[in-house]
Amino acid sequence: MDSANRSPIQLTASAAEVVKQLLQGNTEAPYLRVGVKGGGCSGVAYMLGFDALMEDDDLFDISGIPVIMKKAHGMYLMGMEIDYQQGSDAAGFVFRQPAS
């Protein structure tokens, strides 16, 4: 666990606001977990959820939110931006790689 590291991800203001609302009062899973799963032909799928801190996690403070991820996932998430979008037919978190 190392909160001194620069976070590989960023949260937009709208994503941070929604996460803070969802984390309120959550004592069993007080961290936002960001990760990846899969691989192979279809690439990786991004994961987002709430969890407890584990021994092999890196810990970051992003916009006042405690964010955890497995050390090995950092290379797949480097530079990723997480946004929360709400439309007339759907709402949810979106992972995107900002243009350089």
Rank of each mutant, 00 (worst) to 15 (best):
G38Q: 11
S3P: 02
I65E: 03
H73G: 04
F60Q: 02
I62E: 08
G92L: 03
S63C: 08
D57R: 08
F95W: 13
S88R: 12
Q10S: 13
M54A: 08
L22C: 07
A13D: 10
D89S: 15
I9T: 02
R33G: 08
V19Q: 00
S42W: 13
A29C: 10
F93C: 01
T12A: 01
A72D: 15
A13I: 03
L53K: 14
V44L: 14
L32C: 07
I9C: 03
H73E: 13
E81A: 11
Q86Y: 06
D61R: 07
G40V: 06
L59C: 09
M1I: 02
L53E: 14
K71F: 10
V34W: 06
R33F: 13
C41W: 14
A29S: 13
E28P: 01
V19S: 00
F50Y: 15
D83L: 07
F50S: 02
Y46A: 06
G49E: 03
G92W: 04
G43V: 08
A16Q: 08
F60K: 04
G79R: 10
D58W: 09
F93T: 00
D61Y: 05
V44F: 14
N5D: 10
F95P: 02
S88A: 14
E55Q: 10
I68H: 08
V44S: 05
N26R: 15
A29Q: 14
V44G: 01
G64M: 09
P98W: 06
I82V: 15
G39K: 10
P98A: 08
D89L: 12
I65V: 15
V44K: 14
A4R: 07
V19R: 00
V44A: 07
